[in-house]
Amino acid sequence: ETQAGIKEEIRRQEFLLNSLHRDLQGGIKDLSKEERLWEVQRILTALKRKLR
């Protein structure tokens, strides 16, 4: 995994995270989306740690 590859994956995950946040802010309670949001946040945290 290169730095560029990790950064690209971070961009993808952040896009997905923002999309999930928008969907959930629409007021629709969706447990699967909430679980996915937490999963994406965990992935992002792990990726950012790899960059250090």
Rank of each mutant, 00 (worst) to 15 (best):
E1Q: 11
E1S: 11
E1T: 10
T2Q: 09
T2R: 08
T2G: 06
Q3T: 12
Q3A: 10
Q3W: 10
Q3V: 15
Q3R: 11
Q3D: 06
A4R: 10
A4Q: 10
A4T: 06
A4G: 05
A4W: 09
A4H: 09
A4P: 05
G5M: 14
G5A: 15
G5T: 12
G5R: 15
I6E: 01
I6A: 01
I6L: 12
I6M: 03
I6T: 02
I6P: 00
I6D: 01
I6W: 10
K7T: 05
K7N: 06
K7C: 15
K7Y: 09
K7G: 03
K7L: 14
E8F: 03
E8G: 04
E8Y: 05
E8S: 07
E8C: 13
E8R: 11
E9C: 13
E9N: 03
E9Y: 04
E9Q: 08
E9P: 02
E9L: 12
E9M: 10
I10Y: 02
I10A: 00
I10D: 01
I10C: 04
I10N: 01
R11P: 01
R11N: 04
R11D: 03
R11M: 08
R11V: 06
R11T: 05
R11G: 03
R11F: 04
R11K: 10
R11Y: 05
R12W: 05
R12G: 01
R12P: 00
R12C: 12
R12E: 03
R12F: 06
R12N: 05
R12L: 13
Q13E: 02
Q13N: 09
Q13F: 15
Q13H: 14
Q13W: 15
Q13C: 15
Q13P: 01
E14F: 05
E14R: 06
E14L: 13
E14H: 07
E14D: 02
E14W: 10
F15V: 13
F15Q: 14
F15P: 01
F15G: 09
F15Y: 10
F15S: 15
L16C: 10
L16H: 02
L16Q: 03
L16V: 06
L16M: 03
L16D: 02
L16N: 02
L17M: 06
L17Q: 03
N18W: 12
N18E: 15
N18A: 15
N18I: 13
N18Y: 12
N18S: 09
S19L: 13
S19T: 09
S19W: 10
S19A: 13
S19I: 12
L20P: 00
L20V: 01
L20A: 01
L20C: 09
L20N: 00
L20M: 03
H21L: 15
H21E: 12
H21Y: 15
H21P: 01
H21K: 15
H21W: 15
H21I: 15
R22V: 08
R22L: 10
R22Q: 10
R22Y: 06
R22E: 08
R22C: 13
R22D: 06
D23P: 02
D23Q: 12
D23S: 07
D23K: 04
D23C: 13
D23M: 09
D23Y: 08
D23F: 09
D23G: 05
D23A: 12
L24T: 04
L24P: 03
L24G: 02
L24W: 03
L24V: 04
Q25A: 12
Q25I: 08
Q25W: 06
Q25L: 10
Q25D: 08
Q25Y: 06
Q25P: 03
G26C: 13
G26K: 09
G26M: 10
G26S: 14
G26P: 06
G26E: 09
G26N: 13
G26F: 09
G26Y: 10
G26W: 07
G27V: 05
G27E: 08
G27T: 08
G27I: 06
G27C: 06
I28R: 06
I28F: 08
I28G: 09
I28L: 10
I28M: 08
I28K: 09
K29T: 09
K29S: 08
K29H: 12
K29N: 10
K29E: 06
D30N: 05
D30A: 03
D30F: 02
D30S: 04
D30E: 04
D30I: 03
D30H: 05
L31Q: 13
L31T: 15
L31G: 07
L31K: 13
L31N: 10
L31E: 12
L31D: 10
S32W: 11
S32R: 12
S32P: 05
S32I: 13
S32D: 13
S32V: 13
S32Q: 14
K33I: 15
K33C: 06
K33S: 05
K33T: 12
K33D: 05
K33G: 04
K33P: 04
E34S: 09
E34H: 08
E34G: 04
E34T: 11
E34L: 15
E34K: 11
E34M: 15
E34W: 15
E34N: 06
E35D: 05
E35F: 11
E35S: 09
E35Y: 12
E35N: 09
E35P: 03
E35I: 11
E35Q: 13
R36G: 02
R36I: 06
R36F: 07
R36T: 06
R36V: 07
R36Q: 13
R36H: 07
R36N: 04
L37S: 08
L37F: 12
L37Q: 02
L37D: 00
L37T: 02
L37G: 01
L37A: 04
L37Y: 14
W38V: 12
W38T: 09
W38Q: 12
W38H: 12
W38P: 01
W38R: 14
W38N: 12
E39D: 05
E39S: 03
E39F: 05
E39T: 04
E39A: 06
E39H: 05
V40I: 13
V40Q: 02
V40C: 05
V40N: 01
V40M: 04
V40L: 07
V40H: 03
Q41H: 08
Q41N: 05
Q41R: 12
Q41G: 03
R42Y: 04
R42M: 06
I43Y: 10
I43M: 07
I43A: 06
L44M: 02
L44I: 13
L44N: 00
L44G: 00
L44P: 00
L44R: 00
L44D: 00
T45C: 13
T45G: 06
T45F: 08
T45W: 11
A46P: 00
A46G: 05
A46N: 06
A46L: 08
A46S: 05
A46C: 14
A46Q: 09
A46H: 07
L47G: 00
L47R: 00
L47H: 00
L47I: 01
K48W: 11
K48H: 06
K48A: 03
K48P: 00
K48I: 11
K48F: 08
R49P: 00
R49L: 10
R49V: 09
R49K: 11
R49F: 05
R49A: 13
R49T: 07
R49W: 04
K50C: 13
K50T: 04
K50S: 07
K50W: 04
K50N: 04
K50Y: 04
K50A: 10
K50I: 15
K50M: 11
L51T: 01
L51G: 00
L51Y: 03
L51F: 04
L51P: 00
L51H: 01
R52H: 12
R52Y: 12
R52L: 15
R52G: 08
R52A: 13
R52S: 10
R52T: 11
